[in-house]
Write a protein that binds this DNA or RNA. Structure first.
Ligand SMILES: [Zn+2]
Ligand SMILES: [Zn+2]
Ligand SMILES: [Zn+2]
Ligand SMILES: [Zn+2]
Lengths: 126, 126
DNA sequence: CCCATTTTGACAACGATTCTCAGCAAAGCG
DNA sequence: CGCTTTGCTGAGAATCGTTGTCAAAATGGG
């Protein structure tokens, strides 16, 4: 994979915010900067980053994909439903539990999704 | 909400299978029966049922909404990504864990989503 | 440089979902 | 029953996120 101007721009954009954002948002963000990147390229690059484990993708309630640069170890998210503030969380017991459940029922090639939504302290006060 | 022929047909269709299916699938199923229902009405009815808590909706890895009539107690799903075969699972420890994590970080009004995806034994053989 | 290969991006295409709105059906009423 | 009012339906259009197309541009090795 070649280190192109566009890919660098997307990677840097991903480090410039701390919440989950849609591909369109990221495309807009780049458009206002010094290195505009085509929407198709934004999607391609994000998918590659997700594939490489450098970016996390999850889906909103209405099915839209949103992206965030995260640590590379497996984790889940505690997300404020008001402001999007995100905290990465780990749960070794949950990881074990999902594997056990799947194995018990003969399911292979197992993956799981787990997100916790709440209202953060700052938003509750507001 | 009026008990129309179409709504009854959708509700009955939901009791006739045990896996998660897309709105299109359910529309096709109804189309082969004695009471065809328009696709828009299928969507409207399913959304209402989800709202009423009578049907569970979740999203496949590529964002498509799939629906299933489930038990009324809180539970999660072990879903075959090939055929949709679904097993309801409960994890009291996970429920406790999510509450603890959220409380530790000062998040209130907590909800969570958790799904396990895999390939079931039947589909692995095929 | 030169060439083979990869990448880009404007645009078209796609698929799931929602919207539109004229026609239809279900209550309510006398 | 007729009549009215109101909610419901559905074919097709519109929407919207996402992916495919493909000629032009960029890249890197020789
Ligand atoms: Zn993450
Ligand atoms: Zn996990
Ligand atoms: Zn299966
Ligand atoms: Zn739960």
């Amino acid at each position: 994979m070649r280190p192109t101007r566009q890919r660098t721009a997307v990677v840097e954009a991903m480090t410039s915010f701390d919440d989950f954002r849609s591909a369109q948002d990221i495309h807009d963000l780049l458009g206002r900067g010094t290195t505009p990147v085509g929407l198709a390229t934004v999607y391609r690059t994000l998918n590659a980053l997700v594939e490489a484990g450098e970016v996390d993708m999850l889906r909103t309630e209405d099915g839209e994909a949103i992206y965030r640069r995260c640590s590379e170890t497996h984790h889940h998210h505690l997300v404020c439903r008001e402001c999007g503030a995100t905290i990465e969380v780990e749960g070794p017991a949950v990881e074990r539990w999902t594997r056990t459940i799947a194995a018990e029922h003969g399911y292979s090639d197992v993956a799981h999704t787990l997100e916790i939504f709440g209202t953060c302290a700052a938003c509750r006060r507001a």
